[in-house]
């Protein structure tokens, strides 16, 4: 019997031991690679929703047209809020990487709060639209609009849940510098949701929309 020699690495990819990419084929952490692969896939999801919106944006029938109803100044503010939440997210990561647990918590919380503010803005926007006569069933435009922005909102909300879980984990003392990669990966997701909004904000809101 030959002397047993362990395989180069056990397949325990989601453990701390290999999470920094030690011993993987590409030298990259499995988890981070997974997140990037996933984000590549998400591009096709949002692409589909955005194209649907673009095809339908001038099909508003008798209902309100996008150009009539969008409140650009308001949306600009909430877009700005989301953009800044990306900054706080990256600050949270950099704090944790320095071992600064306290600032890490503060920035995680701020990010989650900014995200919630954005969601609050979206809820306000939706209710205003409905009051102004743009229901989900009003026209192909309305369905496409609510579906696209709604999907984005669900993504942000999931991000907030993840941030809160990180925060809880931090309060329980398990979110340490060694696990900063988890924060980095949640951050990747968060920034992705932000860049999707950068796209939506310009293409859906700022580019002049048809009016009735």
């Amino acid at each position: 019997m030959r002397p047993p020699r362990p395989l180069r690495r056990p397949p325990l990819a989601d453990t701390a031991a290999v999470s920094h990419g030690h011993g993987t084929g590409t030298g990259l952490s499995d988890n981070k690679l997974l997140m990037w692969v996933f984000l590549g896939s998400e591009c096709l999801l949002f692409g589909g929703l955005i194209s649907t919106y673009l095809i339908y944006r001038s099909r508003f029938g008798d209902g309100p047209a996008p150009g009539d109803i969008f409140d650009i100044p308001f949306t600009s503010v909430s877009s700005f809020v989301l953009l800044m939440s990306s900054l706080t997210m990256v600050l949270a990561l950099s704090a944790l990487q320095r071992g600064d647990i306290r600032n890490n918590r503060i920035w995680l919380l701020t990010t989650a709060l900014l995200g919630s503010l954005f969601i609050g803005g979206q809820v306000y926007e939706f209710t205003t639209f409905v009051r102004e006569g743009l229901g989900y069933s009003t026209s192909p435009f309305s369905s496409a609009f609510f579906t696209l922005t709604g999907f984005h909102g669900v993504h942000v909300s999931l991000g907030i849940l993840m941030l809160m879980s990180l925060l809880i984990s931090s309060l329980r003392g398990t979110l340490t510098t060694e696990r900063s990669e988890t924060v980095e990966i949640v951050g990747l997701y968060w920034h992705f949701v932000d860049v999707v909004w950068i796209f939506i904000f310009t293409v859906i809101y700022l580019v002049p929309s048809p009016t009735s």
């Binding site: 990037w36 590549g40 591009c43 096709l44």
Partner: peptide, 26 residues
Amino acid sequence: VAAWFMHLRFDSPLFTKFFVSGLVLA
């Protein structure tokens, strides 16, 4: 944002490739 906040500037080009292939394909 992708370059700085998502660290694509410093991180492995492989990540950029995945992301960009999704973007380009879409």
